[in-house]
Design a protein around this nucleic acid. Structure first.
Lengths: 208, 208
DNA sequence: CGTGTTATTGATAGGTTTCAAGTTCGGTGG
DNA sequence: CCACCGAACTTGAAACCTATCAATAACACG
């Protein structure tokens, strides 16, 4: 009933519409949920990080593709016994509800970003999000952080083109707000300015 | 524990961050969920129609404003007894989970629209959505439908400006795809063309 | 019938995309 | 170990779409 499965960067984990035979928990790596228009334009509609959950009780299929962004390891459970577990354990059902509501909040934040933010604001928001994670609270927010995707994937996440992503990264670098150790390691040099560049309300209670 | 409350078009039903004292079910009218950036740009992140539910078990506040788009009547329940009900009735908890997952799917469709669709595609998608509702299945999709919001509200829903909304409506009218009886009553004259204008995959199984 | 709100229409400006070269980087095989 | 090769990224110029600004028109309500 429980098993581990691995995927290499770029592998498709689940296709849209495919019958859902298992649910899973992310063990390591980054995966993305994405939707595609008829002519090939795509938009990521979610990001899966370690400890995130794939699958939904009561649904036999999903409306988006799930793709491994980096190498991914999943801990999978057969769907049928899992659903029995959910039915019998109110605590588990409640936890799944929590997760769904968290995802919904995240989706709505992203809708604001996609619909109303400029390219610069989108990039700043994305960087701030990455920098905030890992270094979960007080400790120095200005340390090295990992950029876990290519420019093209970032563009699909932010509703931009890869060229615009590249330009905005380098603009922020030129202004001394961030710096790159290499293409996938960056450091925030000026959190205040970064936060101002997001277009959001001041600090969100994280800055001193 | 149960009561009815009315709001006039434009009234704010709930402010972001306000402690949530009740949950509610929409009885009549249209309400919208929206988020606002520091400088006033706003984006609707959801639409509430009759029978939709407001509130989330286990959460004491919400991360967006809820505003009455038209005159609205709500059927309200005090939060505390409602949560007791949810805890004690697995069937209700399950139903709420369903609703949350439906909202999540809708939010993700909207992310694709906001991130990747052109103004024309956004308008076409919006119109098709309105036309599909009410007339829930087979019966003539090409009847009068109601436009339940102002151009400005539509713009905030689609991530556009009101001028662009107006121009795209009139472009589709000029092409004979839709027609307006007045500013808030329209008719779809050519569903095929409308569907093609959405940018989505063919028909979604609704056309013959 | 005014009067204010909502919608249309036009002209212009601006931000992103698109198209097109280059460049850097990491890995691979000679 | 180094040269090469392809993928990922950067950079530039032009085109295009949408926003912005501004004026007019249509509508709804008293």
């Amino acid at each position: 009933m429980k098993s581990y499965r691995s995927f290499k960067a770029g592998d498709v984990i689940l296709w849209r519409g495919e019958p859902l035979e298992f649910v899973a928990s992310m063990v390591q790596g980054v995966a993305s949920l994405s939707k595609t228009l008829e002519d090939g334009r795509t938009q990521m509609v979610g990001l899966l990080l370690p400890s995130d959950f794939i699958g939904r009780p009561g649904r036999k299929q999903i409306e988006f593709d799930v793709t491994a962004t980096s190498d991914v390891t999943l801990c999978c459970f057969d769907r049928v016994p899992f659903e029995r577990l959910v039915d019998e354990t109110p605590h588990v059902a409640q936890r799944l509800m929590e997760l769904a509501l968290d995802e919904l909040d995240a989706a709505r934040d992203w809708m604001l970003l996609l619909g109303r933010k400029t390219a610069r604001e989108k990039i700043a928001t994305f960087i701030e999000m990455l920098a905030r994670r890992g270094r979960s609270n007080t400790s120095n927010l200005t340390a090295q952080s990992e950029l876990p995707m290519t420019r093209d994937q970032i563009a699909n996440y932010l509703g931009l083109t890869l060229e615009t992503v590249s330009r905005q990264f380098n603009a922020l670098k030129k202004e001394g707000i961030i710096d790159f150790k290499n293409r996938h390691q960056f450091e925030v040099k000026d959190i205040i300015a970064l936060n101002e560049a997001t277009g959001d309300d001041a600090d969100g209670g994280v800055l001193s």
